[in-house]
Structures are given as C-alpha cells and as structure tokens.
Design a protein around this nucleic acid. Sequence first.
RNA 1: GCCGGUGUGGCGGAAUUGGCAGACGCACGGGACUUAAAAUCCCGGGUUCGAGAGAGCGUACGGGUUCGACCCCCGUCACCGGCACCA
Length: 804
Amino acid sequence: MEYNFARIEKKWQDRWFSEKTGAAVTGSEKPKFYGLIEFPYPSGQGLHVGHARPFTAMDIICRKKRMDGYNVLFPIGFDAFGLPTENYAIKNHIHPSIVTRDNIANFTRQLKMLGYSFDWDRCVDTTDPDYYKWTQWIFLQLFRNDLAYKATMPVNWCTSCKCVLANEEVVDGVCERCGSEVIRREKSQWMLRITKYADRLIDDLDDVDFIERVKIQQKNWIGRSEGTELTFATTAGDPLTVYTTRCDTLFGVTYMVLSPEHPYLEKWKDAVSNWDAVSAYRDEAARKSDFERSELNKDKTGVLLDGVRAVNPATREEIPIYVSDYVLMSYGTGAVMGVPGHDQRDWEFATKFGLPIIEVVRGGDITKEAFTLKDDTGIMVNSGFLNGMTVKDAIPAMKQWVTEQGFGHPKTNYKLRDWVFSRQRYWGEPIPLVNCPKCGWVPVPEDQLPVLLPEVESYEPTDTGESPLSKMTDWVNTTCPHCGGPAQRETDTMPQWAGSSWYFLRYMDPKNDSAIASKEALDYWSPVDWYNGGMEHTTLHLLYSRFWHKFLYDIGAVPTKEPYAKRTSHGMILGEGGEKMSKSRGNVVNPNDIVEQYGADTLRVYIMFIGDFTKAAAWSGKAVAGCKRFLDRIWVIASERREGDELSKANEKEVHRAIQKVGSDIEEMKFNTAIAQLMSLVNQFYANEPSRGDIRALLLLLSPFAPHIAEELWELQGFEGMACETAWPVFDESKMIDEVKTIAVQVNGKLRSTVAAPLDADQQTLLELALADRKIAGYAEGMEIVKTIVVPNKLINLILKPKK
RNA sequence: GCCGGUGUGGCGGAAUUGGCAGACGCACGGGACUUAAAAUCCCGGGUUCGAGAGAGCGUACGGGUUCGACCCCCGUCACCGGCACCA
C-alpha cells in the first residue's frame, strides 16, 4: 500500500475538526496548560513558511502535553487591523473588512491544512466589533485612571502613510512598514502613560521565565538610570536644572548646554545679546528630523548664549551656557552640565569651542580624549573634598553633599517614552471618546460600546493629517454623554498594537459579552504558561501587553501580575541562499507548494529538523525531500502488520532511549535532535525487525511531529482510539543500560585505543583491560604509570613516564 | 561606540555541559536490484602522509588553566541582531 499523504491528511483533519480533539475545557479537573503563539496578521500573501516554524513548534508541545494528560488551551486568532490591509483596500477599491474576511478565510484554510491542533471554537478577530468592544473598554479604563492623555508634541510622521508612528515603528529614520521618510511634526495625540509602569516592567522580569536576551532587551529599552538632578544658579535669576549620572565630576564642569527646544531660550530672549544667532540655530535644528540630528559622528555644533552665565555650585565659578542639538529635550531636563574631561561628547564640544578641559578623575589622558571609566581605577583630583576618593565612593559622597546643600537630589531617569496611541487612519479601533466644548473629553458610556467603525465612501488618508473619519460629519457630530449638548467624536483610531495587547485573555472566554473574559475563565487559565514568538516583538508587543496586563491587574480585572509565565523565541527562516525571504529576491517558499508536493507532515518534520530552533536557518529544497524519505521509510516499516505487543528484545533499549530523548527534547525545544533520534530508531527497525509493540511506541513518539501519518498507521495497526489521544509512552531506565561499555583509553591525555569493559567496572579492572590492549601495551613498554584517571563507564587515562 | 549572540567536514547541524569531536540529515562515492535509468536497499567517508597496520594535524585566531578543553579564563578577528549624542 502506498503512502498517499493527500488522502490521509484530509481524512484526519476532517476527523480532528469534527471531533474537536483540540478543544480546551474551562474548569476541567486535569492540570491546565496554556500554550500561545503570536497570532498572525492576515496578509494578502497568505501564510508564510516563517509562520510554520513557531506554529509547528507550539503544536508539537501542545500535542505532547495532551498526551501527558493536560487540559490544553492552544488557541488561534487574527490580528487584522492595520495598514497593509487598508492600503490594499485603497488601491483596489475593496472595503478593508472584505479584504480582511477573505484573508482570514485563506489563512484559516492554510492553518487547517497543516494539521495544527488549535481550538478553532475560540478563534478571535481583532476587527470583530464583539472583540474591539473590549479593546475600547480597556482604553476607557486607562482614560479613567489618568493613563491616557492628550498632548501636543513632536511626533514621527510618515510622509507616505500620512500617519503618526510610535518611536518603535521608526527604523533608521524611515517608516518600518513602507520605508518612506519620517519627519517631525507637532500634533495633538492620545498618549498612554507606560512610563508610570517602567519600574514594574523591569523589576517583575525577575519573577518570569523569559529567555535572558528578551529580559536584557526590555531592560535596555526601558533604560533605567540612577543619577542626580543638580541645580545651577544663573545670572538671569532662573535656576538651571540638569540630570547627570556622574555628579562626582561636578568640579570639572566648565560650561552648560541647553537643548534648542529648551523653554529658557524664549524666556531669556531679552537677556541674550546675540539672540539673532541663537534664534537662527534653533530654527535650523527644528527643521531637521530626529534622524538627521542624531546622524553618526556628526560634528558638534552650537551657539554661545551671550549674556547669561551659570554658577558651578562646587567651585562658585561662573561658566558659559551654550545651545547645542547634541542635547535632547526629550531626556532628562533638556540641559546638561559640560564635563569635557570625562564625557566624550562634552570633550568634542569643548575642543571645538576652545573651552577649558579639567581633569577631575586621574587615570586617563584628557589631552587626547575624555576619561570616562567609572570603576575603581580612577581617583578624584582637583575636586575639593572629593580628592583622593575613588569614583565609586565619590558619587554617593557628592550626592549627599548636594542634597544637604540644597543643590540637588538623587533622581531616576528612563529612556522609555510614553506610548503615542493615536493613528490618523481608518482601519483601526475608534477611540471611544467625545469632545464636548463644555465638558472636555468625555468617555462614551460603556453600555454604548462598541463605537462601531462607520462605513465610509473614502478611507484614504487626508493631506491635512486628520483621520479619514473626520470627513464623516454624520458620525463625528454627536451629543455629549455628560451634558447632552452638541459634541464631536474623536476621529483618530488606535494603533495595531491595541488589539494584540490583550488577545490572549480573550481566548480564555472568547464569546463573553459582559466582560473581557469571565472571572472563572481568567482564574482557571491565567497565566499563559508558555508564549513563543519573534524577537522583533520584544520591545513592542511584548512590552505593551505586559503594561496593559499590569494595569488590568491593578484594577482587579485579571488575577496575575504578569501575563506570560514563560517566553521563548525562534529564529527566522531564510531563503535557499541564506538571505531573508522576499518577493524581490524571488526566494519565497510557499507552504502550499510544499504541502502539495510532499504533504503537511513532511513540511512539519522538515521545518523542525532544519536546525537549532532558536537560530536563523536557511531553507533547503533537497533536505525537504530527505524528510519525505524518512516518512516513506516509516510508512514501509509500519504499514505492514507486525507480531508481538511487547517491545522486541532486539529493539527495546533503543525504544526506551527514544522515549526519553524525544520527550525531553520537546520540553527543551530541541526538535531537530528529537527528529534525529526518531530517524535513528527507524534505522534500528530496518536493521532489527520491529514488533507491533515497537511500532506502537514509534507512532506515539512521531504523532506530535507528523500527526497525520501517525494516525493512519495507528489505525492500520489496529490500535485503539487515536494516537493523539493516547498517553505518551513511559520509558524504563533499567532497560536502557548497556551491559558492556566501550571505554576510551587515553595515554597522557591522548586517545590511543578503546576497550570493551563490563558495566561499572572498577579502576583495577579497567587498568588491566587497558594494559591487555595491544596498542596500549606498546605505549606502556618501558614506562611507569604515574597516575590513572577514571571516568566510570567512559574513559581511563594513563599518565606514563619513562622508568628511571 | 554600547548591549546581546554566533563562529565545528563540501552543506544544515550534533556532542549527556570538562571525558572517544562530527550523531542525524543533505550532497557525494561504491555495491545490490534493473536490459537501462529512476526509486529502493546495503556499504563508505574530517584532513594530511602511508600500499597497509598506523601516525600527524584538526571545533575562527593567539595565549592560559587542566591528566584531559568545541566547552572554563585572558586577548584578537569576523559575521548576525538590538540600541545609539539617553548626559
């Protein structure tokens, strides 16, 4: 009989979906396991082989967990709001909701074709009003708790998408999505106060099992730094406050710098004698994008503020104040103290402007570059009461001094900024607020949610930068929920990150119409036990969703502080030549083609065998065929009716080892070596005819990886039920023992021979066996044994030296 | 520049974390079956020298620790990812 994968895969998928073998049961007595993958964006291109890697991995884990007796929640959904769909809709004059519906249908078909054991009854779609009702509800809670606010600020503006971008969406000065230029633009935007959660987002990482590089990347992104705020008196009267992490260098401050956006510039206008030059510099800086301003190795530029001077509180000396765009308004206070001896940027500025450079930490050569080391090697000099101390001691000493003197105080700063939450686009969740001339911003009452996205004629972006919704006057004009007077709806929509910030909660109870999910479901399923996803989401989705979840925890809406107990990450699938897959390179592999040619099981096995799951891996068409060959070999050996329900004597050792190895490899995401182990087992069966019991074990081990062929062979062999619903086999360590061990024999640390020895042979026995070996005897000739090192059951190393 | 990561045959990758480097697969070579080819099955293989038994050299490079190092330590180089005038 032939291995007809197309027929078999269709047959078993129909059966799994009709019998709902992937269904999760809220409240079951079994232990629960919640395995999560990042739900896909349903693009027009359809499923990519890149999706297949993490999806197959988590499917294998979840299938194994079910066999281990867990009540598994393994859900799927679609993150369907967003720009590509909207752009496609505009270009082809099809409504985004229709584009979305078609794309979801296509994705669903493809996901089912790969045999993933999702609980399809829990499928969510972020563009479904029954879903985004709750996205809007969460926004309203944020608003009520003063975590959403409107602010006019310079924002990143994509010139092509005609839309505001979050900092995270700007990559190398261009739009992450379309690659167009991003400029700065003043706009009034809804903001979320993620910065209020900065400390908890860092500190609570200690309580979760995330891979280390995710934790480090999140910490770096949040960028907490412990420093000091210092206040300098000025001749203009206004005290000037700066932030520094090196208050120990205060005696070395020889000038001050303000950012071009610093409010004091306007304030000091009359006191500044060269205002024209200052004003011109400021205007020039304003015209530049953030990217231009921060371009690599740019020469320092700046202008002296002629007429105002600051006073160094430590030395009491007057020092000049400059304006320069190397100081950012958005970090710290927008002003810095210049310490050219011990900060490289200050050193460059001082060198260019001929400012004095004072050494206050000994250890470097400040005529050549700034000496920036902060460790114990530096000793304070030219620094009054700090002289002779190490930098390490000087920092707290200075902190204490400035605090006592009233010049400053300790201060923590963060690189993290608040989250720009508005988008001037159509295809997103409407922000459920009404602007009333009398009452200000008023939330839409919760019983009126969802605020539906209105049907519009044109959803094209406007040149003014207003949302397309602003043209819908019927929809925009409404009454104030508070005073009943005429008012206007907010026309901005939410960013794509909104719907994905809480979707894992909705899976727990997806049809609930009175809450994001029932308390019972939240208590039962929380937290997500294992979340696997891409590293590219570490500082966006993963951080945003942790923020929302902590907020929901604070208002009592969810039972855990953290949403995800464990986070792992997979490597990218690259094209055949090791380059990123892209349409322009023409190296994109379509899963449909692979499934058609080899079947879903082959694709699943190959994508897991391709290499280390955590590292990038290049596609190989030849190697796919090798995996098909592996399944063919299984078909041949397992489709034939076998005798004997026990494991065969010849194979039992290898079977037990495989049960152990495959099981532990799945837990550790070492899928490639798990499959290698299965291949070895099949090779073993080709050498020693397997019993029916041997085949049974093989099929169970195979079933998470290649579930269709495993079920078909399971049925052919006449085993009961379905393999995917059978318990994972148990290994017996005592059956895995070799009675005879091959022992490596080293002479002076070099491998010279191997000998066969009984299990657990002692040193004396091993020594005798080694010396009985012809080659070793040759080496030992005329030598004496100085030392013998034995690693039980592994190795004996003889240290020899010539006899005197 | 800073923070992470990686570097092993012709190729993808293994190595119980200090104990026989190269599992498993791809590609390749040889054999069996076949009129022939494909498919399948069996065998082989790091590299150099050697007819051979065998010996030397081998985990990016240079040192070190150790009876013993792909693994630990110090230094260097290359590539990948993230951040980047964050004071």
